[in-house]
Simulated scan of single mutants.
Amino acid sequence: MRPFDDFGGTFRDLVSRVDESALPRLIGAALQTSQVGDLQSVVVGLEKKGLAETVSSWAEKAPTPFSAKEVEAALGAANIGRVAMTLGIPAQSAAELLAESLPTAVGVATRSGSVVLQGSVGKKNAP
């Protein structure tokens, strides 16, 4: 076995163990390495696909769940395939990993200010 043959399993394990504050960097790095985009561009894409309310909920204490099917529908099979190839896991596993980790990663990144939700831009600028 080569050193990185089980990178996908290692990555999934790392995601489950990492401190919540590091999750945006970890998921963001996987998305960028896969050439899907950074976390901010993925959020904008999700919002444009009609998921603004769901994405906004991720910054709150009761985030709306996000299924693997919704991830695939929103990001597209090609992007899920790129993430899967980068991580060395099946596409279904990549969609499940993103469904589990995107809400937390986006919530943390939004609260820290490193990701801006389009729905919140108007709210911040309102008197």
Rank of each mutant, 00 (worst) to 15 (best):
L75K: 04
Q92W: 02
A74V: 00
A59G: 11
G50Y: 15
E100R: 11
A59F: 02
A59D: 02
S112T: 13
A105D: 07
T64E: 11
G81W: 00
T86M: 01
A73Y: 05
N79E: 10
T86G: 04
S67R: 06
S67A: 12
V83W: 07
L98S: 00
S93Q: 04
T64W: 09
L102A: 11
E47V: 01
A74W: 09
P63L: 13
M85P: 07
L46E: 03
P103Q: 05
E72Q: 14
K48W: 15
S93Y: 03
S112A: 15
P103S: 07
G50P: 13
G81S: 09
T110R: 07
L75C: 10
I80H: 06
P65T: 13
A62T: 15
S57H: 05
T104W: 00
A84L: 04
R111S: 08
V83S: 02
K49Q: 12
A62I: 15
L87M: 12
A99C: 10
E100D: 11
V55F: 08
A59K: 01
V44R: 00
N79M: 03
G76F: 10
M85C: 06
T110S: 13
F66M: 11
A73I: 01
E72H: 03
E72N: 15
Q92V: 15
A62S: 15
S67F: 04
V108L: 02
K49D: 07
A74G: 08
A59V: 03
E60S: 10
K69G: 15
E96P: 14
A77Y: 12
E72W: 04
A95W: 03
P65R: 12
P90H: 06
A59I: 03
V71Q: 09
T54E: 00
L102K: 07
A52N: 11
A105T: 04
S67P: 08
E53H: 05
A84Y: 06
A84V: 01
Q92F: 08
V71C: 03
A99P: 01
L46W: 01
T104N: 06
E60I: 07
K69F: 12
Q92K: 14
A94R: 06
G107S: 13
T54Y: 05
S112N: 13
T104C: 00
A91N: 05
E100I: 03
L102H: 10
E60W: 07
A78K: 14
G88M: 10
V106Y: 04
L98A: 00
N79C: 10
L46D: 00
F66R: 04
K49I: 01
A62N: 13
A78D: 15
S101T: 09
T64I: 15
G45E: 05
E100Y: 05
P65A: 12
T54L: 04
T64G: 03
L51D: 07
G50K: 15
I89Y: 01
R82K: 13
A68D: 10
V71R: 03
R111N: 11
G113D: 14
E70M: 06
V71L: 05
G45L: 07
G107P: 04
A109H: 07
S101E: 10
T64L: 11
S56V: 14
G88W: 07
Q92R: 12
G113W: 14
V44C: 09
E100T: 01
V83N: 08
A99W: 01
A59S: 11
P63H: 07
V55S: 02
A77H: 14
E60H: 02
S93I: 07
L75Y: 06
R111K: 13
L51S: 06
M85G: 05
P103N: 00
P103C: 08
L102S: 08
L98M: 11
A109E: 08
T54I: 05
